[in-house]
Design a protein around this nucleic acid. Structure first.
Lengths: 190, 190
DNA sequence: TGAATGACTAATTTGTCCATTTGGTCACTT
DNA sequence: AAGTGACCAAATGGACAAATTAGTCATTCA
């Protein structure tokens, strides 16, 4: 049996997207990186955008699995957020790709990237929202709008990961976690 | 004494920036709107960018005065944040301008606008930071990194004002205030 | 014989003019 | 002396050409 060409292509494309972004990676380049003919790519993927979407779908799937694995019914909501966040932050490769995509979205506005980020955010918010609903039912957290809460958590995460680095040195994983605790869970009041 | 032409120009430009953004307002247009000759503008302002900067300086000054007026030493930090936020949200005209600028920054990346927003954020963060330092000293809030806290507060504000509207109906002033209370001050924990 | 390929084509992007617009000046008016 | 708008140089936008890139398909070869 020959090597799995589809996998080779996915990995090559993923690497290229991470390094150069969506717009700047050419299909020729992906073919070269994957050591396959360009035509081969098109036997597995209808076009560039579908190749991109499949990579994102894979990323979402892995993230979801990771977040679900780290979920423990018996632990508190905060504990679970902590563990999920930790797991997500440890996905260096996937994380790097999303960072690159956020960059490209911000400074070039590539439509395919904008779209992907939109769905990515929707998926994440839906995921968090469901957990928030459970947490409210269980009485882990105070009553709140689950969608809005998920939205705020995601925005806080993005702000700490992407925006803070623009003018300051990056935050450590542990810092990000403790900031989540401080701002979202405990609050600043005495 | 004739009418204050400088003021006329500032108001006309401000109005035009608010309606069409920085790039799309022409100096001819501003002259027409202000009912002055184009040359007159250049007797008061070196160029378009300086005219823009003066408008922003004015906006910052007014905001600062408003925030300072609404500050009351005898009240708690949260109470003061509440009052300042309320005042800022009531500046319809200035608020409209900043919204337009944020839009232009996001979808066209006009350099002059990017720069202005950068300094605007710096000013706001410095302002909040100072208040946070005081609040910590007074024991109003738990110990925290003042800069990071100011950053988080600003980002939360921007997320609620600008980003939430992309996919949901705008939040009311009262909602925004209560969300600040919920997420930043009280926390979600029970 | 069918999976893989890369030369080929169509479509998109980039680069280069030129026409138009716009920021900025200044001789002239009031 | 303050104010102006015709004027000029610089920036911008649009039309067209050149170059790059996405996507196809006849050919190869295992």
């Amino acid at each position: 049996m020959s090597i799995d060409r589809k996998q080779l292509i996915l990995e090559a494309a993923s690497k290229s997207f991470t390094m150069f972004g969506y717009k700047a990676t050419t299909m020729d380049q992906v073919a070269k990186l994957a050591n396959v003919g360009k035509g081969t790519i098109y036997t597995f993927f209808k076009n560039k955008e579908e190749l991109f979407d499949e990579i994102i779908k894979g990323l979402v799937r892995e993230m979801k699995v990771a977040a679900e694995e780290s979920y423990d019914e018996s632990k508190s909501f905060y504990e679970n957020v902590h563990r999920s966040l930790m797991r997500v932050l440890e996905f260096r490769k996937e994380h790097q790709l999303t960072i690159k995509l956020f960059q490209e979205e911000k400074e070039m506005g590539t439509p395919a990237v904008t779209e992907v980020i939109g769905t990515l955010e929707k998926v994440v918010i839906t995921f968090i929202k469901d957990r928030v609903v459970q947490a409210i039912e269980r009485g882990d957290i105070t009553d709140c709008d689950p969608e809005l809460t998920a939205f705020v958590m995601l925005k806080l995460y993005i702000a700490l990961i992407f925006d803070w680095e623009k003018n300051h040195k990056p935050l450590e994983k542990e810092q990000i976690l403790s900031l989540f605790q401080k701002y979202i869970f405990d609050g600043l009041s005495r």
